[in-house]
Design a protein around this nucleic acid. Sequence first.
DNA 1: GTCTATATTAAGATAGAC
DNA 2: GTCTATCTTAATATAGAC
Lengths: 204, 204
Amino acid sequence: MTRPRAQTRIQQKNSEAILEAALEVFSQSGFRGATLDQIAEKAGLSKPNLLYYFPSKEAIHAALIAGLLKVWLDPLRELDAGGEPVEEILAYVRRKLQLSRDFPRESRLFANEILQGAPRILEAITGELKPLVDEKSAVIAKWMAEGRLAPLEPHHLIFSIWATTQHYADFDVQVRAVLGHEDDRHFSQAEEALVILYRRTLTP
Amino acid sequence: MTRPRAQTRIQQKNSEAILEAALEVFSQSGFRGATLDQIAEKAGLSKPNLLYYFPSKEAIHAALIAGLLKVWLDPLRELDAGGEPVEEILAYVRRKLQLSRDFPRESRLFANEILQGAPRILEAITGELKPLVDEKSAVIAKWMAEGRLAPLEPHHLIFSIWATTQHYADFDVQVRAVLGHEDDRHFSQAEEALVILYRRTLTP
DNA sequence: GTCTATATTAAGATAGAC
DNA sequence: GTCTATCTTAATATAGAC
């Protein structure tokens, strides 16, 4: 229903072009700010042809959002309760920062959605994200109780990791303006800084 | 030109009602997503009457944005080069978190603007924010060189403070969903966690 | 599958009475 | 100052030819 009917090669190709274009537009303008004209133009299709592949603007957006949460949560899923605590957290920070570098549009799509009250993904957040965060928070709390990690309220620790890493995607324009960078070299500086920050904070 | 012509008491009152309503709507939907109908409705005025006070949608948005950057930068301006380094930074973190608690809509208005490419405030960012950040980064770098603060690239330290504090306003919906909170008690937890985090990281 | 043409609604803005 | 009525444009979506 919210899925493209792609099957033939040409349908596959066009569906992908549409989703790629839609990601570009939705991530920059939010749902209401985006227009089918912009998406059609970027996808190289006419507007009616766009609506041959997806029944509505809603459906295009839904298709993008659907795949998003999984990608977004995978780095946290990988946090291994059996690993070395400090290194596990640092590896998580690195994975999350990499997402910001490699998928900034997805990050902004997500940010737009949350910022506007998360009308389309709130249930996924309470149903899927919250349990995962609670589970991993328990792991972190256990590490802290065992003295293998300096104590810090786990949920807020996780929030801080989300915030500091996603900032480089969501506030990209501002980061570049302040640093005066054209390229992406601030990502490795950011990684260095964040690793130092969390290592100092969390080493017992 | 972008300013309301408010002079009489009734004009004053209506202008304020409009800006209040506009803040609500723009901060939730972004510029393009917001409609004059919504703003008029919330302000308790008819749409034409709205446009009697402000010449256009652009003008209302501009009036909001105009006051924003100052409020946003004041906490950083107060960072005192003559103060005790660690305490100065922590006080800055607290001020910034307070802004998120007390003015979440302003934070989201700003976030929306940046997220969408900052078309209306990029020049203010390069012209006003960047110099201030550079100046305060120099102060922080000096503190670090003197051994009064543990070393950490100052720009990225500032980014991390922005990110972690603004997160509680911009991603409010997500924070509440994850914590299961109805009230604002997570703000004091957040303050505690962030103060611990930055104190550990920055104490030499 | 793709297009032109068009229906339909919503949105920004204005005219003009009161 | 405020309203009703309305103009104009833009946006989502559909019809129907090819």
